[in-house]
Design a protein around this nucleic acid. Structure first.
Lengths: 231, 231
DNA sequence: CCCTATATTTCGGTA
DNA sequence: TACCGAAGTATAGGG
């Protein structure tokens, strides 16, 4: 990995066109040739970048560019699309290279998957007498998060989200339409379960006869054996 | 901005829990205190990070940690949520600080906005005899991208996307339901226009009587006066 | 300030 | 490989 701090301007042309005026920034050249242009603020997203696979070529400025103060040009070209990134360097303030090796990668411990597992284990949160049929119940248009039965034995389809948005209601609606055409399942009622349900989504859901269930993740995790704590 | 190359392991606890095994990585500390952990590959997303507002505290390892090879501990704490990032540093290979100043920021030149402008100018792409009523036609549930009339004078609502997905069809469906209740507008037909329309979205749209229109951005831009070319 | 929609999204899953 | 959904999404724009 090469790290360069430079006064530069950047032009990108590809799916859109963008320009960064002259300023001091970090240019990070990764081992795969990809380039990240970072400022000293914002979030983890660079101001501009080129994703791999791509190649970086450096060149000398022509007379006009040299007169404008440019001392070096970097052209990063994507190998598949026609995307191009041009870095016009006016001054190099730092330049260092480092051998990092390949990274073992990130190990994650679930969010929505965990929520689904917990709700399956605590299925009576849906109401007394509910029984789990199965998680990820497969239909022609995709898997329903949880299929259960209520106290009367009728089918209940559960759509699970961390944040309950209109999209999730639409998704569950499509599942319900389809499943209610199946005589072996019908009648199927719907439950929209999420840690947080947006007012718009709740309105739409209830308008369609879908029950909304707000889940308390911490409480559910508290009931759990509590294995996966790091600290 | 401070740049540190170090052999380290990282633990994150917040909305999820994640762990990075010991390896050599770049630690980027931005002026606002935020931290990015980058490997020498992947895309622009860091392996792990902490977004501002947050604070970084360094501390000495205890005896047990020192025995495990840790020479320094960084604890990054988010100021609003309880998110925490702990960097266990085993070896520092590089450490430098740089003054960057505030960045003037990125200047973008349209994507969907441009597509909307182009289609409004070339409204007959919808079909012969079509006339533009207006862009961003406001309804109670949001703006319709383009409202037009067909050769017979009937209303046409256009939903525009770069990539035509099911979401867009659902969105247009909601607009059409609403607009068809307005006697001044009804009957309103729908056109789902995008650079690329997913098969699932097309099926859903046509099933609902919505016409699909694939737009050739380059061709439309070619018809345009062609002002906004960078190279 | 909250909500909504987009993204040069990226990333992981499965068919 | 391609498509689809989720993300510790981030970010911009409107009410």
């Amino acid at each position: 990995m090469r790290l360069v701090i430079a006064r530069c301007s950047v032009d990108y042309a590809g799916r859109l066109q963008a320009h960064l005026p002259l300023a001091t920034r970090l240019l990070m050249v990764k081992g795969d040739g990809s380039l990240l242009v970072h400022s000293d603020g914002g979030s983890y997203k660079p101001l501009n970048w080129m994703s791999p696979p791509c190649t970086l070529a450096t060149s000398e400025p022509d007379d006009e560019q040299r007169a404008a103060g440019i001392v070096e040009l970097w052209t990063v070209t994507h190998k598949k699309t026609a995307d191009r990134l041009i870095v016009s360097i006016h001054e190099v303030l730092h330049d260092s290279a480092h051998e990092l090796g390949i990274d073992p990668g990130l190990q994650k411990n679930g969010v929505e998957a965990h929520l689904q597992k917990l709700l399956a284990e605590q299925i009576e949160l849906l109401g007394e007498g509910h029984r789990l049929v199965r998680r990820e119940y497969m239909t022609a248009i995709g898997p329903v998060d949880i299929l259960a039965t209520d106290a009367s034995g009728a089918s209940v389809a559960v759509e699970l989200k961390r944040r309950g948005d209109i999209d999730g209601v639409e998704q569950l609606t499509r599942y319900l339409e389809l499943m209610n055409r199946d005589p072996l399942l019908a009648p199927v009622t719907g439950v929209f379960a999420a840690q947080e349900i947006k007012p718009q989504a709740r309105t739409l859901a209830e308008d369609r006869g879908i029950r909304c269930l707000v889940l308390d993740y911490d409480a559910m995790r508290g009931v759990d054996d509590g294995d996966s704590r790091l600290f």
